Simulated scan of single mutants.
Amino acid sequence: MNTKTIVSLCNKLKLAGVAQAFEQQTKNAEYIDMAFDKRLLELLNAQLCFTQDKRQKSLLRQAKLRFPNAYMDDIEYELYPGLKPATVNQLAKCDWIKNYQHVLLIGPTGKGKTTLACALANEAIKQQVPTLFYRMANLLLELVAAKKENTLDKLTRKINRVPLLILDDWGNALMNSEERHLFFELVEARDQNGSLIITSQYPVSTWHESFQDATIADSVLDRIVHKGHKIELKGESIRKLMGINVSKSGGHNAK
């Protein structure tokens, strides 16, 4: 058997997963008497895993998460009073994305909203869901700049191609007339076509104020809030709690 030739052909055909698995098979005696179809099935499964892993890494790079290493398994629920594991585990299934629903993470600064948003995003990426992360202020700046540079269509197509869009720090600044119009058009285009994760320090009841226009505020929020899974994070700042734990444990770095 010419292992090198087979591996070379697999790589030329961009079947790196098959090539790696085949090399492993040739080094393991248990495969000598295994039926061809079983060996082939293992090779194809190896290629599938390789392709999915490669796709996942690509989606993670494209998402540009603020905390790309935030995962559900690392959530310390004792730092999130009132956050129920059952709720988080249900959201991790990502059925809400398939149904074009949203997740609203509300709470004071330092409560880990962005970390939780990124952990949810990583679950979506594991399921091969394209994702984008924006700080709300930066998104508004990009929309305005794209309009001035006549590239607005290109930017909105890029954003609307992803099923999951994360908007971090909603409501930190008031929108001017141009910003709220552009944002309304974006939300309108994504309605029934995509999902949002929104983090905000402010209660949903105050979100109208950032628009400075009651009609547009009603139109935007009606498309978001009524289809949103709202999670309110309470208690002390996680940064403060982690700082206390750091000092008690001898100065280890807190994440």
Rank of each mutant, 00 (worst) to 15 (best):
I97W: 08
K98M: 08
K98S: 12
K98V: 11
K98P: 02
N99E: 15
N99D: 15
Y100P: 00
Y100C: 14
Q101L: 10
Q101C: 10
H102P: 09
H102I: 08
H102F: 05
H102Q: 08
V103H: 00
L104P: 01
L105T: 00
L105P: 07
I106A: 01
P108Y: 06
P108G: 11
T109S: 11
G110R: 00
G110A: 05
K111W: 04
K111S: 13
K113T: 10
K113G: 09
K113F: 08
K113D: 08
T114V: 09
T114N: 03
T114I: 07
T115V: 09
A117V: 07
C118R: 01
A119R: 01
A119T: 07
L120N: 01
A121Y: 03
E123P: 05
A124V: 06
I125A: 12
I125F: 06
K126D: 10
Q127R: 14
Q127S: 11
P130V: 11
F133S: 08
F133L: 06
Y134P: 03
R135I: 03
R135A: 12
M136D: 08
M136A: 15
M136C: 14
N138K: 12
N138A: 13
L139A: 03
L139V: 08
L140C: 14
E142Q: 15
L143R: 00
L143T: 05
L143M: 10
V144P: 00
A145L: 11
K148Q: 15
E149C: 09
N150P: 03
N150L: 10
T151P: 06
T151Q: 14
L152V: 04
D153P: 00
K154L: 13
T156G: 00
R157G: 00
K158I: 07
K158N: 12
K158G: 07
I159G: 04
I159A: 01
I159P: 03
N160M: 13
N160E: 14
R161F: 13
P163W: 09
P163F: 06
D168F: 03
D168N: 04
D168C: 06
D168V: 02
D168H: 02
D169T: 03
D169Q: 12
D169I: 04
W170G: 02
W170L: 15
G171F: 00
N172M: 15
N172I: 14
M175R: 04
M175K: 03
S177Y: 04
S177K: 13
S177V: 09
E178V: 09
E179C: 11
H181M: 11
H181G: 05
L182C: 02
L182Y: 02
F184I: 04
F184S: 03
L186W: 09
L186G: 07
L186C: 07
L186H: 07
E188R: 10
A189F: 06
A189V: 05
R190C: 00
D191R: 05
D191L: 01
